[in-house]
Design a protein around this nucleic acid. Structure first.
Lengths: 261, 261
DNA sequence: AAGTGGTCTAGACCACTTT
DNA sequence: AAGTGGTCTAGACCACTTC
């Protein structure tokens, strides 16, 4: 028999499922319910990126389950990179403010030599009404406010990535070119700490395209040069899409690295 | 204190570690040792792709550990796609002869519509002496025998992927154009059943390149067309590299799909 | 010494498949 | 009914970090 946590109670107790009704509510294992509760606490900001979450023993007491069940829940959250375990210390909410997380969303590597931090140049940051296509992807209404960013990234001083980024205006209200420019470190770090929106996973579509008139002068390549087009949709907790990013990579000295397993 | 399985014994017993010596042998948890033993059995062909492996209870008895420890070992093997668990049935060695596994190593998706099985046309299959560069990647000696394959893949009748493949000659001795051509299903399925070499993971490098003279006529594109270059190194059990594949994808109607997490 | 996550065990019961 | 993997518990001990 399955068990179910009382829906509202965060410090809930284990209860029976009762007799199955007509439209039987799809039961999920206890550890999945615990996992959902922990994810809710992450989403609500109860535990912020970089912070220590309660210990397994503490959570087991709170949810009235065994430590092993909490453990299995956290195991999955750890596998999904939502939290990071550190033996002897505790479990921490994953953050983009770590060398470790920097290259999870940046797969462009130099063909030879070590990977370096890119530098940025912001071209523009402005508010727009969301085009239908952008609205659809971000799961907002067409015409809703969006923040539009255009920037260039340099590797070792060489312009390499040209990006256009769309963000929901509601979430990224106070985002300005100044704040972006003065911010040290990866953009997702800023999104996380300044706007309470950590990027958790992303989906990308890659194509080879020819350099067009607009990109030629910005990237300093001849027209027709083959470039790697990368369209990304990034998601925060609860699989909510919060970023559409269209990028052009110059791949004569770099490559997009991918592991298949 | 750590525990160690007696090295040689497959039906081994748990023993103590003894007092740590000078160059202390890095201890690993029991379940990692079990995992290694199971991997060895996969590698040796004791359990072949598609076959049922012994039950958790059986393996626990064989290795003289608890079922929970075997379970954790198999959990990781399952996460790495080396085995597949099926409730009520048992645990099976992963195989490429499944619709499920088809698209794990083929990330090219149509921009619109459903993904279809590609058709093949083999241009050549021949034996070569491995160039230094190929030998280095395949971890063989320069000049060693390699099998070289050149083929074209069609999606919905449209030529889309041009591939050059290098395989170690020792493993793929009897591979001929006929066997390749008459084989139904994915190439990795043939590698697995005919040559006892299942591909388990791969590493890819992507670049945008311009169509050159050689590819133009085969792919039916105009010179200079931007194409996606995909260089893959594929590995079998024990992280042994067994394939170098250089491919060119036409990406006007398709895209390379990737999930970041 | 105390607290944390990591490993290992033993046992119970559930969900699913096959006989 | 029997066998398989899946879930959950309780308890023990280990490895690591901090106090």
């Amino acid at each position: 028999m399955n068990q179910t946590l009382s829906p509202a109670a965060v410090p809930g107790s284990v209860v029976g499922t009762g007799s199955p009704s007509v439209a039987s509510p799809t039961f999920s294992p206890l550890y999945q319910q615990i996992k959902a509760l922990i994810t809710q606490s992450l989403q609500s900001g109860e535990w912020k990126p970089g912070e220590l979450i309660p210990s397994e023993v503490e959570l087991a007491f709170r949810y009235k389950v065994s430590q092993g069940t909490v453990r299995k829940a956290i195991d999955e959250l750890s596998a999904e990179n939502l939290v990071v375990r550190r033996q002897g210390k505790g479990t921490f909410v994953a953050t983009h403010h770590e060398a470790r997380a920097q290259f999870r969303f940046l797969r462009l590597m130099p063909d030879a030599g070590e990977a370096h931090q890119p530098e940025n140049r912001i071209f523009e940051v402005k508010r727009l009404r969301a085009p239908a296509e952008v609205a659809r992807v971000l799961d907002i209404k067409s015409g809703d406010s969006v923040v539009f960013i255009r920037r260039l990234q340099y590797f070792e001083g060489v312009p390499t990535i040209l990006e256009e980024i769309w963000l929901p205006g509601v979430i990224f209200k106070g985002l300005t070119a100044e704040r972006l420019a003065e911010y040290k470190g990866p953009m997702y770090g800023l999104f996380e700490t300044e706007f309470g929106t950590p990027m958790v996973r992303a989906s990308e579509k890659l194509k080879a395209v020819a350099a067009d008139a607009g990109t030629v002068e910005l990237l300093g390549v001849v027209p027709g040069t083959p470039l790697l087009s990368v369209e990304r949709v990034a998601f925060t907790y609860g699989d909510r899409p919060v970023e559409l990013r269209r990028a052009i990579y110059i791949t004569d000295q770099h490559h997009y690295h991918n592991e298949l397993s």
